[in-house]
Each structure stands twice: as structure tokens, then as C-alpha cells.
């Protein structure tokens, strides 16, 4: 029975946690118009991973992740600095830093491996994610870090809320926007790095964006949005893992993203109030109302 299979459980739990964390953190990333930070930071983490390997000398996941974290944070810092002190906009700074860092990572990697082609199993796992190779250790780490992130989010919930909505007003109340920005960025980068092992660099942006966007369609309350984002993310993780286990030759990461995308598309189409179908229905309804009204007016003249 698949569901009792140890490996499956491990991967499913890991994916679910990834979905949960990125769904929640993604809520704030999307609202802060930093949706592509997932994409950027994932790529920018590569030099950190390689340096971690060079300095520590082992393929111990924790150290590699730590290196990735530092690299990711440095890139975020640089992006903020560039935007602050020049007329370069966030999207350009993001694209620049992300590709430069990634290139630097490649240089370091080929330096380490001493072959011109950076084709490595390790690199593959980093770029595409290898959810199926998740081990209990990895998942435990995700659970611990994930819990800390969620705890921080709950503790500072109202501070993050007011800062994201109106940072100037928040400052007038005595909440330092700089500190909150730093904390939130730190948490988001950590979440991204944690999730890299599961879906890889390229797909990480989807996990940060899709569940949050989907959640937004169903509610007008921030807390519910974050909660739904977590649920949608977790569902994508679990179902993606399950389906890719059943069907042969279906890689886990992309399948998870497929589910996340499906949820977004369904939400955009069907959500009551905001959803497209609902809007079309309302338009048609209004149009027929107008026709009726005009008919009435004509008949009374």
C-alpha cells in the first residue's frame, strides 16, 4: 500500500511542509509586490551552496543550506541597496543580481569540479529539485525551521500586517519599517531555501506565488488568505507527490507545480465575487436587467 510506504510518507510530508510555508510566506511576498523573489533568491543561492561545500568539505545538507541562506540574504541586501541608491527598478535589480550570482555559482562549481561542463547530479538536484530523494533528516529540518517561521509569523502578525499595508502609517505608530522589512525578508529567504530541495530553483517561484494568489480569490481577510495559502500549498505538495508516485516517470517537483497552477486557475475562474465566471455571469445578468428595464420604459411611453 503506497500510503504506508516510508519513502512516500517522507516525501509527502516534506512537500506538504514546503507548500505550507511557501503558501504563508508567499502571501506577504505577493502583497509586497515581491512575487519573483522566490525565483531570484533560488538562483542567487547557488554560490552559497558551492562555497558551503568548499569550506566545509562535505555534502552535509545543513551546511549547504546555510551557505544558500547567506548567499540568498546577501543577494536580497544588494537588490535593496541598488533600488535605494539608483533609478534602477526592483525587477531589473532582481534579474541582474540573480543571474550574476548564478553565474558566479557556476564558476565556483566548475572550479571545484575542474571540468568545464557543470553537469552534476548535485547541481541537477538543486535546479530541478529532487523531492524523491528527500530523507527523514531533511524533512525534520524543514519541520523545525518551518515551525520557527510560523511561530515568528504568528507573534508578529499585526506588525507584518500593518507594515505591508501602510508602512508610513506603521512608522508613525512607532513600528520600525526597516526592522520589519529585514525580518520578513529573512524569513522569506529562509523559507525559499528550505523549499529548494523539493521543487528546485526554477519552480520555487511558483510555490511562493500560486497558493497565495489562489487564496486571495476566496477571501478578503489577510489571516484567511494566509491560512488558505498554506492549505493550497500543502495540498499541492501532497497530491503532487501522490500522483507522481502512482504514475511512472512523472517527476515530483513539476507535478507539484502543476497542481498548484491548477488550483490557481480554478480559483481565478470560479471564486465567488472575484472569479471570472462569476463576473461574466453578473455582466450578462446586468445586461438582461437593462434590456428588461428599457423594455418597460418603452412600453410606458
Amino acid at each position: 500500500m503506497l500510503l504506508s510506504d516510508y519513502t512516500f510518507q517522507t516525501v509527502a510530508i516534506g512537500s506538504a511542509i514546503l507548500g505550507l510555508i511557501s503558501g504563508v510566506l508567499g502571501t506577504f511576498a505577493v502583497l509586497r509586490k515581491q512575487s519573483l523573489l522566490g525565483d531570484g533568491v533560488s538562483h542567487a543561492a547557488l554560490p552559497g551552496v558551492v562555497l558551503g561545500f568548499i569550506l566545509i568539505g562535505s555534502k552535509n545538507t545543513e551546511f549547504l543550506l546555510l551557505g544558500a541562506l547567506l548567499s540568498g540574504l546577501l543577494s536580497t541586501l544588494l537588490i535593496t541597496t541598488i533600488v535605494k541608491y539608483s533609478r534602477i527598478k526592483f525587477d531589473s535589480a532582481l534579474a541582474l543580481i540573480m543571474s550574476v550570482f548564478f553565474g558566479l555559482g557556476l564558476v565556483l562549481l566548475t572550479y571545484v569540479q575542474k571540468i568545464p561542463n557543470a553537469n552534476q547530479a548535485g547541481l541537477n538536484r538543486f535546479i530541478f529539485g529532487q523531492a524523491s530523494s528527500l530523507m527523514r533528516r531533511d524533512v525534520n529540518l524543514m519541520i523545525i525551521c518551518g515551525s520557527i517561521l510560523l511561530l515568528l509569523l504568528i507573534i508578529f502578525w499585526k506588525e507584518f500586517k500593518i507594515f505591508t499595508f501602510d508602512s508610513e502609517f506603521a512608522q508613525s505608530l512607532g513600528f520600525s519599517p526597516k526592522k520589519l522589512d529585514l525580518l520578513l525578508s529573512l524569513m522569506t529567504v529562509t523559507g525559499i531555501i528550505l523549499g529548494l530541495q523539493t521543487v528546485g530553483v526554477i519552480l520555487m517561484s511558483a510555490m511562493l506565488v500560486a497558493p497565495a494568489v489562489a487564496a486571495r480569490q476566496w477571501t478578503n481577510k489577510l489571516s484567511v488568505m494566509a491560512f488558505l495559502g498554506a492549505i493550497f500549498g500543502a495540498i499541492s505538495g501532497i497530491f503532487g507527490t501522490a500522483v507522481s508516485s502512482f504514475i511512472p516517470k512523472l517527476p515530483t517537483g513539476p507535478t507539484i507545480v502543476l497542481f498548484a497552477s491548477l488550483i490557481v486557475l480554478i480559483s481565478i475562474l470560479l471564486a465567488p465575487g472575484r472569479g471570472i465566471l462569476h463576473r461574466l455571469y453578473r455582466q450578462k445578468h446586468n445586461r438582461s436587467l437593462n434590456i428588461e428595464r428599457r423594455a418597460e420604459n418603452d412600453s410606458t411611453i
Binding site: 507573534i155 506588525e159 502609517f169 506603521a170 508613525s172 505608530l173
Partner: peptide
């Protein structure tokens, strides 16, 4: 949100 200032952190 206007009350947050009076509540302080956390």
C-alpha cells in the same frame, strides 16, 4: 490597525 500603536509590539 490604528490601535496597534497603543498595544505596542506583539
Amino acid at each position: 490597525m490604528g490601535r496597534f500603536g497603543l498595544l505596542g509590539w506583539i
